[in-house]
């Protein structure tokens, strides 16, 4: 069975003027359907870069990337937009909701950019909000919601197009412990529903909820291990 995500010898250099910084060096990994992967490592270790390459937000300097066995790097920019729209759902540390849109409109954003026409996009956005328990706050503006609620709206937005992979960059980094737990249990719930989740975190406790932890240091994978509390699904690792 092909992996959902397969990275082979991925390198990424960021250029700052004449200097270039190696953000990722020779990263090879697979992520299978249904996995709950935590990426850990110190600041600047390349976690976010890894996430943006997997999420088709950024292009690696070299290497290859297969999504469902299909070569992603040869696809057009237009196709990349479609992949971001349909295959991935992003959750960010600072929520990144559009401040002038209501919760419902924010959740509807990925539906707005779908190439095919949905019969009832509003019902779909509403259902996604219901799944994160915010069905009653649909018409609220982000500024009228608490941090935890905003992040739940962001999660609803990430899952509204039923993506293959949820990519979360420090999703609980800006939240207190109790709201953090709410978000984590929502993610766990979604994972039980079959969603593949990959999250970047500093928080050992958050990483502990995952069934697989990938450790990065200076752009290289230094650790890839299944955590003790894993449930089922196989973990494919080359290390």
């Amino acid at each position: 069975m092909t992996s959902l995500v397969a990275l082979e010898h991925i390198h990424k250099q960021h250029r700052f003027g004449s200097q270039s910084v190696h953000a990722l060096s020779d990263v090879t990994m697979q992520i299978d359907r249904g996995e709950f992967v935590a990426v850990v490592g110190p600041s600047g270790s390349g976690k976010s870069t890894l996430l943006s390459i997997i999420g088709c937000l950024d292009r690696p300097s070299s290497g290859s990337y297969f999504l469902h066995g299909q070569d992603v790097l040869v696809q057009s920019r237009r196709r990349w937009s479609e992949l971001r729209n349909r295959r991935f759902g992003f959750v960010f540390q600072n929520f990144n909701l559009l401040p002038r849109l209501t919760a419902l409109e924010n959740v509807g954003l990925p539906l707005f950019y779908r190439r095919d026409r949905l019969r009832n996009p509003i019902a779909r956005a509403r259902a996604a909000l219901d799944r994160v328990g915010l069905g009653s706050r649909m018409q609220h503006m982000p500024s009228q919601l608490s941090g935890g609620e905003q992040q739940r709206v962001a999660v609803a937005r990430a899952i509204v197009n039923e993506p293959d992979l949820l990519l979360a960059d420090e999703p609980t980094g800006a939240l207190d412990t109790s709201t953090r737990d709410t978000i984590l249990s929502i993610l766990a719930e979604l994972r039980r529903g079959g969603l593949t989740v990959m999250l970047v975190t500093h928080d050992a406790e958050v990483a502990g909820r995952a069934q697989r932890t990938i450790g990065l240091r200076d752009g290289a994978v230094v650790d890839d291990s299944k955590t003790s509390c894993t449930s089922s699904t196989s973990t494919v690792s080359e290390f």
Binding site: L57, L109, Y113, R157
Partner: peptide
């Protein structure tokens, strides 16, 4: 820039 980034991340094409 942030808004544009968000829109791009959720599937907006450059022409959108």
């Amino acid at each position: 820039f942030n808004e544009i980034g968000i829109r791009l991340a959720f599937g907006a094409r450059p022409q959108d």
